[in-house]
Design a protein around this nucleic acid. Structure first.
Length: 473
RNA sequence: GGUCCCGUCGUCCAGCGGUCUAGGACGCCGGCCUUUCAAGCCGGAAACGCGGGUUCGAAUCCCGUCGGGACUGCCA
């Protein structure tokens, strides 16, 4: 039987990195086995679900580089792949379960149920212990699945191994609310059955729900899929990944200048590894090697630092043309205007040098800002560190004098001239070039100096050197 | 409280009874290179939670303990 897996996001918020990672593992599993990857919209919560979130989620998945074979936008043999379009089907399932005796109506009030929970808890029992089928049959209210008390629910989880739950610890959960809408358990399980899902790989937070889904599936007369519960993602402090750790939405990383291929690679390394040695690898390598059985059981910390490093690796490895194409919008965003053709040409003189030292696109844009805009003031720390030293004025004077005569104005000739200074002034190279760098770029950290000056142009370079000289007094 | 899951460097991953003086990656520290910053190269510090067992032999198997987490809704 061919593998059919799915990701089933709820459009009640933006795509979380943890959900994205789960989607990624499902996708890898499907592609590895030549199976089918399905996206299904779990929007049974009509109150909180929106079309905007649905689009945001789908766009984020696409950005990550995952494509789906059945689901919204692409269709498939099972309709719209949106649960809100299948409420009739879920009601039909619930009704037939009542008819077969597997489920029952329950019209007890919230207060009554709460009392039963309190009682059970005070006796050290499972909260749902006393919430079972009432003695007298009801004909309205919510519909609960009756949990058979004849034996444990045992299943072999692909990543956890054998997991077992005792029936008294499973509550008679609601499958159809009294307003006729299905709960997540009913809708998800029905869809998994109807869509022929063979493997369910999802977050570990759903592990306690799994016996319910298994029992529901069996009550429907089917055999449950194989389950794989993936470890959860945490922040670097070991706490649940939340806003405090920075971005939790995939789209925030996109907006921060991360590359999808770096994100893909990084996420694939959270809970799984290609071979234990290789950190950077392609999608194809991942597909070839992936197996849910090799997924780690431990929760993983999402480390933005390592992601940034990996992003830099991908940036350095890409074709220069692609780098130029990617960096341009960031430079323009940083400047707040579009680049003129001649400015773009000038950027080309330093582009390869910038690409080499970029981890994040927005950071690179900042580094070349001096090429396109005059800075109002010098970076304070840089100025204090290099411009207050003895001999700086002399360096600038000599640099200005020498540079005026450089011809043609290109990196090679600028360097030829500048290289004369240290010996002439009897100073170390860094002592000479750093003041010039601060004068020209406004800070002590910049792309290589000679190329930067070449790209800036003679007039602006000299203008900035003179300005700095004036500031020195 | 109850149920379930997890426990190897600060972090991610490898290790599935002997080859572990525990390997790779990020980060960190030092050095080289060097006009700054990166990159690159070289080197370093850094972990099997604890206690019992099983075994000739345990990071690897079992039990306990401690610690962490998830769930415990007519949310998903």
């Amino acid at each position: 039987m061919s593998v059919r897996v799915r990701m089933a996001p709820s459009p009640t918020g933006v795509l979380h990195v943890g959900t994205a990672r789960a989607a990624l593992f499902n996708w890898l599993y499907a592609r590895h086995h030549g199976g089918v990857f399905i996206v299904r919209i779990d929007d049974t919560d009509l109150e909180r679900s929106t079309k905007e979130y649905e689009d945001e989620i789908l766009d984020s998945i696409l950005w990550l580089g995952l494509d789906w074979d059945e689901g919204p936008r692409v269709g498939g043999p099972h309709g719209t792949y949106r649960q809100s379009d299948r409420f009739d089907r879920y009601r039909e399932v619930a009704r037939s379960l009542v008819e077969s005796g597997a489920a029952y109506f329950d019209d007890r009030s919230a207060e009554e149920l709460e009392e039963l929970r309190q009682k059970a808890q005070s006796e050290g029992k499972h909260p749902g212990h006393y919430i079972r089928r009432p003695d007298q049959e009801r004909t309205e209210g919510a519909i609960r699945l009756s949990i058979p008390q004849d034996g444990p629910v045992v299943f072999d989880d692909l990543v956890r191994g054998r997991v077992s739950f005792e029936p008294q610890d499973i509550d008679d959960f609601v499958i159809l609310r009294s307003d006729g809408t299905p709960t997540y358990h009913l809708a998800s399980t029905t869809d998994d059955v109807d869509y022929g899902i063979t493997h369910v790989a999802r977050g570990e937070d759903l592990l306690p729900s799994t016996p319910k889904h298994i029992l529901l599936t069996r009550a429907m007369g089917h055999t449950e899929p194989v389950y794989a519960h993936l470890p959860l993602l945490f922040g670097t402090d070991g706490r649940k990944l939340s806003k405090r750790h920075g971005a939790t939405a995939l789209s925030e990383y996109r907006e921060a200048g991360f590359l999808p291929e770096a994100m893909f690679n990084y996420l694939a390394n959270l809970g799984w590894s290609l071979d234990g040695e290789t950190t950077i690898f392609t999608k194809e390598q991942a597909i070839a090697a992936f197996d849910l059985a090799n997924v780690s059981k431990n929760p993983a910390a999402f480390d933005p630092e390592k992601l940034a490093w990996m992003n830099g690796e991908y940036i350095r490895a890409m074709a220069p043309e692609r780098f130029d194409e990617l960096i341009r919008p960031w430079i323009e965003k940083d400047l707040g205007r579009e680049l003129e053709p001649d400015e773009w040409d000038r950027f080309g003189m330093v582009s390869p040098l910038v690409q080499e030292r970029t981890r994040l696109l927005p950071e690179a844009a900042e580094q070349v800002r001096f090429l396109f805009a005059d800075f109002e003031s010098y970076d304070r720390a840089s100025w204090d560190k290099v411009m207050t030293k003895d001999g700086v004025a002399g360096v600038l004077d000599r640099a200005i004098e020498g540079l005026e005569a450089v011809d043609p104005w290109d990196a090679v000739h600028i360097e030829e001239e500048m290289r004369k200074l240290p010996a002439e002034l009897e100073m170390g190279a860094a002592k000479v070039f750093q003041p010039v760098r601060v004068a020209v770029t406004g800070t002590s950290v910049s792309p290589p100096l000679f190329e930067s000056m070449a790209a800036l142009g003679r007039d602006r370079t000299l203008e900035r050197l003179r300005r700095a000289r004036r500031e020195l007094g």
